[in-house]
Every structure is written in C-alpha cells, then in structure tokens.
C-alpha cells in the first residue's frame, strides 16, 4: 500500500504541475489579449473559448486531488480538535467514504460522457471547432484520482481502527500553514 500511495502522490504532483501551467497560461493569454485589443485592435479570437472550455476546468480538476492531499480543502475542525485520536479516525472514515461515493459517481458519469463525445467527434460550432472531449476528460481524470486517494485513506483508516495501531500514518489534517484564502 505505501507503494500505491507513493504512486498516487507522483500523479498528484504531475497534475499539480499541469494546474500551475494552466494558471500561468490564463494570465498570459488574458494579458496578451487585452494588450493586443488596445494596441492593435486585434484581440485573440480563440482566447475566450480556450480559457472557458479548457483552462479553468484544467486548474480545478488537475488540482482536485493535490488540494485534498495538501489538506487545503477548508473544513470546520473545532469539534475534531477536541476529539481523541480514535474518534478522529472514525470521522475521517466517514469523510473518506462519502467523498469516495460522490467522486466515484462523478468520475463514472464523466467517463461515459467523455467516451460519448470522443466517439461521436463532438466539436463546438465556430471558426475553430473546439473538440469537447478533452474538457470532459478532465472530470474523470481529476475526480477519479481523488476517488483513488480517498479509497486509500479509507482503507488505511479502517486498518488503523481495526488493529488499534497506527499501521498507516496520517498527520493531523492541516491546511497551508493554517491559512485560508479569504
């Protein structure tokens, strides 16, 4: 299982990279678009579609699992702070189970939609016929990876609870240096 966990961490890190690249691209494309529109009266005709179809979705879905592993999905932890480790383990089992169900369902529905779009060669109408399947593929990729991560956490937590020992180590769930984004 540690091997599997390390493998997932590697994929999460690659996905994080891709999300970071999408961020940088959004910034660059919008700035170029704005400047070109002002200075040369010729905005980038593809900027709007590229960003709204692919890049924003890329930032979100590629960082979905990494954000969970980094503990950056905000939660209300006042109660958890007062609980003994075993009870924390139980709450984490509940969280991982419901998360697993939801994201597995989303990933499954997303997979069918992606295959459907790919097989029928769907493109959006317009000067550039953007294919829709790459955007749709982001859903099962991001949610699927998160579901795998949640499954691994679930198994680990259950093992710990069943044996009463810390077979799989989990740190206290913690955000980015305890900071939010408000």
């Amino acid at each position: 299982m540690p091997t599997l966990s390390r493998l997932l961490a590697r994929i999460e890190s690659v996905f994080d990279w891709l999300a970071a690249a999408a961020m940088l691209m959004i910034m660059t494309v919008v700035v170029c678009d704005t400047i070109l529109r002002y200075a040369f009266n010729s905005p980038l005709s593809w900027a709007y579609d590229l960003i709204s179809i692919y890049l924003v979705a890329g930032v979100f879905f590629f960082s979905l699992a990494g954000t969970y592993s980094a503990g950056a999905h905000v939660n209300v932890d006042i109660l958890q702070k007062t609980l003994p480790p075993k009870a924390v383990g139980v709450t984490e089992v509940v969280t991982a189970s419901v998360g697993l169900v939801v994201f597995a369902l989303i990933a499954e529905a997303g997979t069918r939609r992606t295959i459907d779009a790919f097989v029928s060669g769907d493109v959006l109408s317009g000067a550039i016929g953007w294919p829709t399947w790459p955007a749709q593929a982001l859903v099962p990729l991001g949610c699927g990876l998160l579901a795998l991560r949640l499954a691994l956490v679930l198994v680990g937590r259950l093992l710990n609870l069943a044996t009463g020992r810390e077979i799989v180590r989990f740190g206290r769930p913690q955000g980015h240096e305890g900071m939010g984004f408000e």
Binding site: Y68, H73, V74, N75, V76, D77, L79, Q80, V88, T91, E92, V94, T95, V98, G99, V101, V102, L105, P173
Partner: peptide, 17 residues
C-alpha cells in the same frame, strides 16, 4: 458532515447527492 470536519465542499456535494 460539517460538524465532523468533512471539507465543506465535499459535505455539500454529499448531502446534496
């Protein structure tokens, strides 16, 4: 779910689902 520390987004998605 919110009370037991489930991430807010997950909790809303799960309860809504």
């Amino acid at each position: 779910l919110l009370a037991i520390g489930t991430p807010v987004g997950f909790a809303m998605a799960a309860a809504g689902a």
